[in-house]
């Protein structure tokens, strides 16, 4: 009776033709390729900035301030004479680090919570879901602003603030996917065989919800980049002298009449990053799980 149900398993799409076929499918998917390239470039730039940047992003050179883009300074210099290109490289590293950890926090708490709610059901499930509803109804940025403003601005606090609002997203998604799989025959069989809930969750449930979680993580990553930029813009995120794209935009706004070019580069970087991650997410969705494909 459940033979139909078993064949549309979340992971079956990926298992179907083995890894080679999935890779071929991925390379044929335009969203995946464009998103992958954009994201790849970002990561490479961030990694390179760890060991090398064209100029120091701390040392000031007041004499050479507010230069327009040139061969020496590709993106020009800011009001302290720092090289904008170098600052953007370090900004990439900052964006990735904050967002990655924030999404990690969200998934790290959200996934076990969701899996637990699905496995136990009853009042626990009810509590987790009500809490989720509440968190969803509450403007996330508002709370993030509250947390960072009161606990003190900084990268760590913005990670916490962004991470907290990723928890319900992952909890809800995991619970939804897990509930469907708990009803499947092979899980029933495992239960009959006497395996406990933790073992079933680890062996059967999580692998089957992994693909939707990966897709969602990509999208949350993009949202986190936007949130981090917003907090930094408000002066609540990463603190100077560590460069961040949001902070750069804030400073650029005050210099808009003098050096409008400063307001362009960090914004373009944010857009390309978020665009890349969103496209990557769309592509992954198509590749990993055809059933999730949006109408297009």
């Amino acid at each position: 009776m459940a033979s139909d149900g078993a064949s549309d398993g979340a992971s079956d799409g990926a298992k179907e033709g083995g890894l080679g076929e999935v890779a071929a499918k991925a390379l044929g998917n335009r969203s995946f390729v464009i998103g992958g390239v954009l994201t790849g470039v970002l990561i490479v730039v961030a990694l390179v900035s760890l060991v090398w940047t064209p100029y120091s992003v701390i040392d000031m050179d007041i004499a050479g301030k507010l230069r327009v883009p040139s061969a020496a300074h590709w993106f020009g210099t800011d009001q302290f004479g720092r090289d904008v290109f170098s600052m953007m490289m370090v900004g990439a590293q900052n964006s990735i680090a904050v967002s990655l950890v924030a999404v990690g926090v969200g998934a790290g708490f959200g996934v076990p919570l969701g899996a637990l709610a699905a496995a136990r059901g009853g009042w626990l499930d009810e509590t987790v879901m009500r809490f989720n509803d509440f968190a969803f109804a509450f403007p996330a940025v508002l709370s993030a602003v509250m947390i960072t403003a009161l606990a003190g601005p900084g990268a760590v606090n913005s990670i916490i603030a962004i991470g907290i609002f990723n928890i319900p997203v992952f909890a809800r998604l995991t619970r939804g996917g897990a509930l469907a799989i708990w009803k499947r025959e092979f899980v029933m069989a495992a239960r009959v065989a006497g395996k406990n809930a933790v073992r079933i969750t680890v062996e059967h449930i999580l692998p089957n919800v992994a693909s939707i979680l990966i897709v969602q993580a990509t999208i949350q990553f993009a949202l986190a980049i936007l949130a981090e930029a917003g907090l930094s813009y408000l002066g609540l995120g990463t603190q100077p002298p560590q460069p961040s794209w949001g902070k750069m935009l804030n400073e650029a706004q005050t210099l808009m009449f003098l050096a409008p070019q400063l307001a362009i580069f960090p914004g373009v970087a944010i857009v390309l990053t978020v665009l890349g991650l969103n496209l990557l997410g769309d592509g992954l969705r198509d590749v990993l799980d055809p059933r999730l494909r949006r109408l297009r």
Binding site: L226, L249, M256, V271, V274
Partner: peptide, 26 residues
């Protein structure tokens, strides 16, 4: 439209605001 959607959700609204100030005000 789908292109507009992708760009629209990727643009931080405060940066879009700054761009508009640059264009319409400056």
């Amino acid at each position: 439209v789908m292109g507009f959607v992708q760009v629209g959700v990727a643009i931080p609204n405060f940066w879009f605001a700054i761009l508009m100030i640059l264009f319409f005000s400056v």
